[in-house]
Amino acid sequence: MTLDTIDRSVAMLVGVLCGAVVVVGLGMRGDAGLFPAIAATLGLLACMGIGLDTLRSRPPDELPPSLPWHRFTIWCLCILGLLGLMVTVGTFVALPLFLLASLRWLGHLRWAAALMIAIAFSVLIYVVFVYLLAVPLPAGWLTD
């Protein structure tokens, strides 16, 4: 997909959202919706401008760098796993598991090196946030 095609799609999507904001904003009680309506109108105009700009004849459109979907998916799954595990089994189980998985599968470190870094960094986070800053991080089922 070229940048022009992406810009056109973004302009259409954001344009529809801006249109919805204008409609909802103008229907609000008093002048509460005036400012969001003005801002969304500005967004709508910008979307129209971007859309028209992509239709102009120009030198060949460039391609954005290709997205490595495989790595992107692994990374997103790792993050979802981290957030899911943080609130269920607890932060200090989730953190080393997330680091171990991402360092092994994305950083291609050896298991031992990944494990060492994962544990060391989790201990650092514990010392900084729990011990020094007294932040009550989600403890999860294990500690409950």
């Binding site: 801006c18 904001v21 910008a46």
Partner: peptide, 18 residues
């Protein structure tokens, strides 16, 4: 380099601010 993109992101920021 394309100011319209800047205008769009600024408009989105203003909507979010509301």
């Amino acid at each position: 380099d394309r100011p319209l993109k800047g205008v769009l992101t600024a408009a989105v920021g203003l909507v979010l601010a509301a």
